[in-house]
Design a binder for these strands. Structure first.
Length: 600
RNA sequence: GGUCCUGUGGAGCAGUCGGAGUGCUCGCCGCCCUGUCAAGGCGGAGGUCGCGGGUUCAAGUCCCGUCAGGACCGCCA
């Protein structure tokens, strides 16, 4: 080792010790005859006192080695801001290991450069304690997950990243195959099918910190390649998976956020979540619940509401406490906000702070009777604003109110940023209507109906519930999973309902169905969106902060310049332009629909 | 695919009603300085105001297009 001690570890008790340190010049204070250098290494910072002539040439981020004695600082010169502030290292010997050119961005915890510069010079960005800390936190999170899972006899098993294309779900990333021109691998959207095969294989308890790939547009919490903590267990029920999930988050939050997760974590049904919060991933750090007004307003002459009610739809409201004090401009701003989300607008009534009298454009359209009881019906007080949404499609209106609820909380400062609110959203619907009038699986087609619906989901596909569960933290879905179907007859019925015929099922999922013929155990699992979870634990507002070398929004890596064009020779060798051979009885020429676990 | 925000010496910003590349903090270069810790003092260098076009006597500023970064919707669990 070039060094004998870590800079950040030195304390008063080390006084008198001769140490060799190696690190970077974080800052220098040149007084002519004496020069102070803050020497930074992976462990932290310590002040080095130099009196040598050649120390004047030191610049920020020079990589240096220092031999010297740890000494207590002179009285009055301690720096209580630093963990090492009681001591300093008086240098006898200075070696410049590597000089640094003038920096394209400051390596300084107090200064943040723009995102593209940070990513282009990520290796400098990561010298700062914040970005470095986020990656170190993630490393520890990985370790904790492995500790929890290995203590329960899980096996960490890797699965292929060159696999079959999956035309359903998200768009695939594709890889041309030189040895079979005209054919393509796909990068996995998740290890879903492989982990189910591992259950058939008798592995019983599998996990993997798995890289997944989806070719869709970016968000602050989405990258084209991302990581799941992927878990599958045999001979378990939904409750067993939930219990494991709770143990994982409890350990993670206890150690990394100094927070004791209240257990059991509250469970809310999907339907309740939609009715009360207008979201399948409700943020429970604040109240502001939705109120359904479909019955209350039945008979109204206001066409916007009556139209929805008569069509069997939904009218609901959400209250903005103190919202009556908003200016006309602010209230108009809500209309723009709603239109930006594709809604026609956001009807509102404000209750006068003094008299409680309902005012606003919509108030004129409601009867005296409806107006009179409105405050009580929605739980609004004088001074509040009431926002309405109405639609034939219940979910559409609820989601608008749910989005308004979040916006209200933001604008009114109702969010306690230091709070953690966990919940499970359970009893998710199995199916939803497709645009073509058929049904599609909400989770994926191997998700089991729950006990109540096992034998009769065909009778009311819109109401059938699944053994599917999502874990939600502060309004972020950080994990989701389900109990899988392991019985051939149930699987066939689900395929029938989804309009997937036997031939098509064989074509798309043949190898999995084949595997299930040989004694498939009941199994269930969960996938945890690891980037998102680490983002929350680190207090970041983007998953880019917990990824070592993230891509920018356009899918570019500003550091390497990827992606790049390829040469004509590469193109030729890769066989990109080759025409596929006709399928000679090979199943699966359409590719396999890889159902994908929820979360990220 | 759509809506919105941002782009000004190396970094972060300000730049009014369209009137000279103007200003601030940091960094960089030189000199001074023995107890600082965002050290300090003096001096200096550094600019295609993202790019292209338009309006105008005159554009960092207004308009159109485009590129890059970011937020959201669609998409994606």
């Amino acid at each position: 080792m070039i060094r004998t001690h870590d800079a950040g570890s030195l304390r008063a008790g080390d006084a008198g010790t001769t140490v060799t340190l190696a690190g970077w010049v974080a800052r220098r204070r040149d007084h002519g005859g004496v020069i102070f250098v803050d020497l930074r290494d992976g462990s932290g910072v310590v002040q080095v006192v130099l009196r040598e002539e050649d120390a004047h040439a030191l610049r920020n981020e020079f990589c240096v080695k220092v031999v010297g004695e740890v000494t207590r600082r002179p009285d009055g010169n301690e720096n209580p801001e630093l963990p090492t502030g009681e001591v300093e290292v008086t240098a006898d010997e200075l070696t410049v290991l590597s000089e640094a050119a003038p920096l394209p961005l400051p390596v300084d915890d107090a200064i943040t450069a723009s995102d593209d510069l940070r990513l282009k010079y990520r290796y400098l960005d990561l010298r700062r304690s914040g970005p470095a800390g986020a990656l170190k936190l993630r490393s520890r999170a990985n370790q904790i997950a492995r500790e929890v899972l290995h203590a329960r006899d899980f096996h960490e098993i890797e699965t292929p990243t060159l696999t079959r294309s999956t035309p359903e779900g998200a768009r695939d990333f594709l890889v041309p195959v030189r040895l079979q021109p005209g054919t393509w691998y796909a990068l996995p959207q998740s290890p879903q099918l492989f982990k189910q095969l591992l259950m058939v294989a008798g592995m019983e308890r599998y996990y993997q910190i798995a890289r997944c790939y989806r070719d869709e547009d970016f968000r602050a919490d989405r990258q084209p390649e991302f990581t799941q903590l992927d878990i599958e267990m045999s001979f378990v029920t939904q409750e067993d998976v939930i219990e494991l999930g709770e143990e994982l988050v409890a350990r993670l939050w206890a150690e990394l956020a100094d927070y004791t997760v209240p257990r059991p974590i509250p469970q809310i049904t999907w339907t309740d979540a939609m009715n009360r919060y207008g979201s399948d991933k409700p943020d429970l750090r604040y109240g502001v619940e939705l109120t359904e007004l479909t019955e209350y307003l039945r008979g109204t002459t206001f066409r916007v509401f009556a139209g929805a009610i008569d069509a069997g739809g939904y009218v609901g409201a959400v209250v903005m406490p103190g919202g009556a004090s908003q200016t006309r401009k602010e209230l108009d701003g809500w209309q723009d906000w709603a239109k930006a989300r594709g809604a026609r607008g956001l009807a509102y009534v404000v209750l006068d702070a003094e008299t409680g009298e309902p005012r606003g454009p919509v108030a004129k359209n409601l009867s005296a009777e409806h107006l009179g009881g409105l405050g009580d019906a929605v739980g609004a007080k004088p001074g509040d604003a009431i926002f309405f949404a109405a639609a034939t499609d219940r979910r559409e209106a609820q989601e608008l109110l749910g989005a308004a609820r979040i916006e209200i909380a933001k604008r009114s400062g109702l969010i306690d940023e230091s709070a953690w609110a966990f919940c499970w959203v359970v009893d998710a619907p199995m199916f939803e209507r497709t645009d073509e009038g058929g049904w599609s699986a909400v989770h994926h087609p191997f998700t089991s109906p729950n006990a109540e619906w096992m034998d009769n989901f065909e009778e009311a596909p819109d109401r059938a519930l699944a053994y599917a569960y999502d874990i939600v933290v502060n309004g972020n879905e950080v994990g989701g999973g389900s109990v899988r179907i392991h019985r051939g007859d149930v699987q066939s019925r689900v395929f029938d309902l989804l309009g997937i015929g036997a031939d098509e099922a064989q074509d798309k999922f043949g190898f999995l169905l084949e595997a299930f013929r040989y004694g498939a155990p009941p199994h269930a699992g969960i996938a945890i969106g690891w980037d998102r979870l680490c983002m929350l634990l680190s207090g970041s507002d983007s998953i880019r902060e917990v990824i070592a070398f993230p891509k920018s929004r356009g899918g570019l890596d500003p550091l390497t310049g990827a992606p790049t064009p390829i040469t004509a020779q590469q193109r030729q060798e890769a066989g990109i332009d080759a025409k596929p051979k006709p399928a000679a009885g090979v199943p699966g020429t359409d590719g396999v629909a890889a159902p994908v676990e929820s979360s990220s």
